[in-house]
Design a protein around this nucleic acid. Structure first.
Lengths: 224, 224
DNA sequence: TAGATTGTTAATCGATTAACAATC
DNA sequence: TAGATTGTTAATCGATTAACAATC
């Protein structure tokens, strides 16, 4: 395993990273209510996590240490989490596959706070190319690589059907894309330096489904 | 911790569950190509996982053991995974919050294979109520609890803004909903027996973002 | 000071991996 | 039989939790 690249933050586990967005939104509501400090105990109770886990997470993120008897400075934590998660800097992306899901994402404004900016879309259907959705032009799929290179795009959002996903992936990678957000339910093969983040709705649905079948116990972290 | 409820499957970790949908789609393509058996080694190579991990996952799912020199029976695995994930039985759900994301999900046909069936939608905006999207009626939010009870709905999809999410959540729970698919970026407080599955796009975007900033090493499972 | 809360070190727990025997 | 592949037991690794000292 390679070493952590040096930076502001100590090594943070993937699990801890996954807790960060929830912390962030809670911190923002606390701040809006005028709070300045937040104790690990209070946050832990809110989330149903152990106090010590929250304390570890907070102290990994906060630039200054927590204050005994007070807690952690909320603005520090917000700044830390936003910086850590990379929400502070805007990132351009393109989307491939203007089906129902693709259209939805093009219309969805909710990515702004996370720094994602979809600048164009691609589809192989000639009836769609030339049109635009939410101000984003739909271009022909054969221009994917060129466009990525020309606009220096590093993020690709894949919303094509499973069968086409690998081809699209290859085109994006050929265009210099380094990070893929894959909504197609398939495994994508990519070079070492490219990251695939699978948005796996099937997993969520499976977890819901198993809960309803009584297979999940109510306790957290249970085996399934 | 409570015991695993008895059933067809041995205890399977959440991590293993999360690998299942990917296995499933690969198995289906293998089956379509006429394959009958699949070795753990071949699948491991496809996914970039360790052979032994795949073997453990497969043997947990397959009804009959793998065959030395052949591998695992593909149809057994497919059946096992579909059963395990609960995709075999259809489940009715309602959706609350007909904004851009809510509309998108109503229009999206991709949930069928997972057994999810959204039967109705709710919104507090009177300009939307009475209309319908993709054949699904949009009803007034004050009818959430009633409708859930009347139709015996156990899954609620929450696509309202963060501020309203807890209220909507409470209404759904009051209506007897047992599993929530939450797209709002907040933590929801629910009774013990209700499961909240957060669809956390922020996490995905954060992971992409950190990769682009060079903070992620290319190796799998790296600290971030 | 006393008490609340943090930070650190060690223990526990669970998932992954390794080693190797079993079997077709 | 030989070789490929599985299944099982033990070792490793990492995340969480517990215990307790430090500090405001």
């Amino acid at each position: 395993m390679a070493e952590q690249t040096g930076g502001r933050f100590p090594p943070i586990s993937v699990q801890a990273l996954q807790r960060m967005p929830a912390y962030l939104s809670y911190l923002q509501t606390q701040k809006d209510e005028g709070a300045v400090f937040l104790s690990a105990a209070k946050a832990a109770q809110h989330f149903g996590l152990s106090e010590i886990q929250v304390r570890k997470d907070f102290s990994a993120i906060s630039l200054t240490p927590g204050k005994p008897k007070a807690g952690f400075a909320i603005v520090e934590l917000i700044d830390g989490i936003e910086t850590f998660l990379g929400f502070r800097n805007s990132k351009d992306a393109i989307l491939v596959g203007v089906g129902s899901l693709g259209k939805a994402l093009l219309n969805y404004g909710g990515f702004k706070p996370y720094g994602l900016n979809i600048v164009a879309a691609f589809d192989s259907n000639p009836e769609l190319t030339g049109k635009s959705i939410n101000g984003k032009a739909i271009l022909s799929s054969d221009k994917i690589s060129d466009t990525c290179r020309r606009l220096n795009i590093h993020i690709g959002v894949i919303t094509v059907p499973a069968k086409q996903a690998q081809l699209v992936c290859d085109q994006l990678v050929a265009g210099g894309v380094k990070a893929l957000w894959n909504f197609a339910p398939v495994h994508l093969s990519v070079p070492e330096n490219v990251l695939v983040q699978n948005e796996n709705m099937a997993v969520s649905l499976a977890i819901l489904s198993r809960h309803l079948e009584g297979a999940l116990d109510s306790a957290k972290g249970e085996k399934v």
